[in-house]
Design a binder for these strands. Structure first.
Length: 469
RNA sequence: GGCGCUGUACCCAAGUGGUCUAAGGGGAAGGUCUGCAAAACCUUUAUUCGUCGGUUCGAAUCCGACCGGCGCCUCCA
């Protein structure tokens, strides 16, 4: 299996440190607002990677952290006259709800920064001891000149960075590129005790602390958006490797941005849609298919038109899935036993996914399969139910469990004897009589009117079926 | 200025030396089935891969130049 490692900029053979265990850390959100659909891309692609590793038999310890103390949270809390904790708790909850709606598997753990202050302090203390961190009036900074490898992930070197530095120089820093490990408490802001007085952690230190605590000094995969390469991940490396004298991460993975009209979708530009907003109009499966159709590392343009196209694609799979479920229910044993090479489909799927999670090709394999099965169904009158069971198994294993672009259980219509369903059935039987009497105008009117109510009718060979939209 | 990504059909997008007369999705056109519709199936929709040169028996794929889009270097998935 190959993974494109940002660190080496090449595809490397994936060899986890401790197979079959895999440790994976994904940089989560700062919880000061709902996350947008561009953020969702990273979480969904990380989810697909995690699910594929599990498909391959790995046991993945998957951490998705939550940054619950940060400038933006504090600002928001002041604006809303709430405590920082109230703000972060509210949006942390929303974050998990929205991820669940996007069918992202819950992480093994969602560690929060504020619950790991001690761990952060001990790393900072270690850096102070080594003479890498310095204290200026209760503010602690990381001295980047003390870490010779600084810049090795982002391909930058200190001179270039300094030359291009646009940062407003903080007088306290020895070097403009030094970054804060610990910020001295300000009046009216949350703070914690530390050996250097009251204060709060800098942004980068939490990932070093939580990653180490739960996954060890060296982890297999660390992932996040492209914009985290520098400075965030660069700084994490500097902190962790200087402190523990060990390689921090084996495989760095970074996700491309979601653009809107060729511009990065971002909070600051204001050109974003929240994930929950989009979920009101499009299914999670369509959103996931939209992302899976593209290579995770490149840019991707967002538009509702493209999501609609993805929704159509999902419908295509759903239509087949419904037919499959119906085919299984019929329990036919003396029908045709079509010849389809399931093994080969599995092989194609793993082959492409093994190549740096080529989900675009994986999606193509699924659609090729769907087309093939549809073709078989259209060519045979009676097909053994076992064929449908096998078909379903393939789709569940790949499209559902790995990509998450179909969900068989959600197809189950409530066949419960609700009054509504009974009325629909009644209308259908009346309509059937009308059809037999060739009173098509009236039959069509019933179909159209039901459609307006969100009930879609399909006349098949074996009677009329309906679906609530 | 440095580092990185990117330019493939009407739209999205895979493919990075021969199996590419270029996957897959959406759209469009025609056909089969159907009373009609929907679904599904079949056929068609790039001899061509930003432009111009070069390397090679052979290039969308390698090299060079040029043109265009985007990002990071400051909080950001």
């Amino acid at each position: 299996m190959l993974i494109n490692n940002t660190f080496s900029k090449t595809k490397e053979e994936f060899r986890p440190i401790n197979p079959p265990n895999v440790t994976m850390y994904v940089c989560g959100p700062t919880v000061y607002d709902y996350f947008h659909i561009g953020n969702a891309r990273s979480f969904i692609m990380a989810d697909i990677i995690r699910r594929y590793l599990e498909f391959k038999g790995y046991s993945v310890n998957f951490l998705l952290n939550i940054t619950d103390i940060e400038d933006k949270i504090i600002r928001r809390s002041k604006e809303e006259n709430k405590t920082a904790q109230e703000v972060s708790e509210f949006y942390a909850k929303a974050f998990n709800n929205d991820l669940a709606s996007l069918k992202v598997k819950p992480a093994t753990r969602n560690p929060k920064a504020t619950e790991h202050i001690n761990e952060m302090i001990s790393i900072i203390a270690g850096l102070v001891e080594k003479g890498i961190a310095y204290n200026v009036d209760g503010n602690l900074f990381y001295d980047v000149t003390k870490f010779p490898d600084y810049g090795k992930l982002s391909g930058k070197n200190l001179e270039e960075l300094e030359a291009g530095a646009r940062i407003e120089v903080n007088e306290q820093k020895k070097n403009p590129l030094d970054f804060a490990l610990w910020k001295k408490a300000k009046e009216g802001e949350p703070s914690w005790d530390s050996p250097w007085g009251k204060g709060r952690p800098g942004w980068h230190i939490e990932c070093s602390a939580m990653s180490t605590k739960y996954l060890g000094n060296t982890i297999d995969i660390h992932a996040g958006g492209n914009d985290l390469i520098f400075p965030h991940h660069e700084n994490e490396i500097a902190q962790s490797e200087a402190c523990f004298n060990q390689k921090f991460v084996k495989y760095w993975m970074h996700f491309g941005f979601l653009n809107i009209q060729n511009e990065k979708m971002s909070k600051s530009l204001g050109n974003f849609f929240t994930a929950r907003e989009i979920l009101k109009k499009y299914s999670a499966e369509a959103i996931r298919l939209f992302f899976a159709q593209t290579y995770y590392g490149g840019p991707l343009n967002f538009s509702e038109e493209l999501l609609s196209a993805a929704e159509k694609g999902v419908e295509k799979i759903v239509n087949l899935a419904e037919m499959i479920d119906a085919g299984i229910k019929k329990n036919i044993e003396d029908g045709a036993q079509p010849d389809i090479d399931f093994k080969n489909y599995y092989m194609q799927f793993t082959e492409v996914m093994d190549d740096d999670f080529n989900t675009s090709k994986a999606v193509a394999v699924i659609f090729d399969f769907v087309k093939n099965v549809n073709k078989i169904v259209s060519e045979n009158e009676r097909i053994n139910s076992s064929f449908f069971s096998e078909t379903k198994k393939f789709l569940v294993d790949t499209a559902e469990n790995v990509l998450g672009i179909i969900h068989f259980d959600s197809l189950q219509k409530e066949v419960s004897a609700s009054l509504e369903n009974e009325v629909i059935e009644l209308l259908l039987s009346v309509r059937n009589i009308l059809k037999k009497e060739k009173n098509f105008p009236l039959a069509d009117q019933i179909r159209n009117d039901l459609n307006k109510l969100g009930i879609e009718l399909k006349d098949g060979k074996e009677g009329t079926t309906y679906k609530k939209k």
